[in-house]
Simulated assay, not measured.
Amino acid sequence: MQFLKKNTGRATTTKAQGDAGEDEALAYLQAQGLRLLQRNYRTPGRGGGEIDLIMQTADGTVVFVEVRKRSRSDFGGAAATIGATKRRRIVFAAQHYFLSWSRLPPARFDVVTLDGAGPQWLQAAFDAG
């Protein structure tokens, strides 16, 4: 039964591909002068949100970054995969992240896409509204 045999190929998992994309986006943003505050921030419980990278600019703005990597540009490319539900979950996670802060800094929601032509940084890609 061939299908029961363990896959010993060098195929990369989706998780590994996502991690590699986040590594690339992180290096790119750090080269642009942003500082990493946290990576893969998750809210507790089911149905919560997750933020790939939480960065900070030199002026103190906290930047919540969603990283999207696609090997093909069918159906609009990587940026087109961030729908209303995903944005809502990112905003929810950002609100949860700020619960322990005594003063709220300026914040924005950015997207870094990796479509094959190098990182594309979309600043203020969406808002909390």
Rank of each mutant, 00 (worst) to 15 (best):
F75T: 14
A25M: 06
R103H: 14
L34T: 13
P119H: 05
D59V: 02
F64D: 03
M1N: 13
E50G: 06
Q32D: 07
R108L: 05
L122N: 12
G83T: 11
G76M: 08
R108H: 07
G18L: 00
I51L: 00
S100D: 14
T85W: 05
A31T: 10
A94I: 05
H96E: 11
L34R: 07
R89E: 12
A11V: 04
Q30E: 15
K69F: 01
G45H: 05
W101P: 02
T61R: 02
L34G: 08
A128Y: 12
G77P: 03
A84Y: 12
S102W: 07
S102R: 07
F92R: 09
Q120Y: 03
R39N: 05
R42F: 14
A16R: 08
I82F: 09
R103E: 15
D110A: 13
T14R: 01
R46N: 15
G18P: 03
F98A: 15
R72K: 14
F98G: 12
A31P: 13
V111W: 02
L104A: 14
Y41H: 10
D23R: 06
K15V: 02
A94M: 11
V65C: 04
Q120I: 04
Q56D: 01
G45S: 09
K5E: 14
A124I: 03
M55H: 04
V112F: 00
R70S: 06
A58L: 06
A31S: 15
L53D: 09
R46L: 15
S100E: 12
N7M: 00
Y28R: 05
S102V: 12
L104D: 09
T12G: 11
F75P: 05
F64P: 01
V67K: 00
T14L: 03
E22R: 00
T57D: 07
G76N: 04
A31N: 15
I82L: 14
G48L: 02
Q95K: 07
G129P: 13
G60K: 05
F3T: 06
K15C: 02
A124R: 11
Y97S: 08
G77M: 04
R35I: 11
D115W: 08
A20Y: 02
Q95G: 08
T85Y: 04
G83K: 15
R39H: 03
M55P: 07
Q38T: 09
R10G: 09
D74C: 12
L37Q: 00
K15S: 11
Y41V: 14
S73R: 15
G33M: 01
A31R: 08
A79T: 09
T8S: 14
Y97T: 08
Q38N: 11
G9I: 00
E50W: 06
L37I: 13
A20I: 00
I82G: 08
T113W: 02
E22L: 00
A20E: 04
Y28C: 10
R10T: 13
W101N: 10
D19R: 10
L114H: 01
V91F: 07
V67P: 01
V65H: 05
V62T: 05
D127P: 04
L122W: 13
Q56F: 00
G48P: 03
P44A: 11
Q30C: 13
A93G: 09
A80F: 01
D74K: 15
T61C: 12
Q30T: 13
G60L: 02
Q38I: 01
Y28Q: 07
G129T: 13
V63W: 08
Q2M: 10
R39Q: 08
L26Y: 04
Q32G: 06
E24S: 13
G76V: 10
T85L: 06
V91L: 12
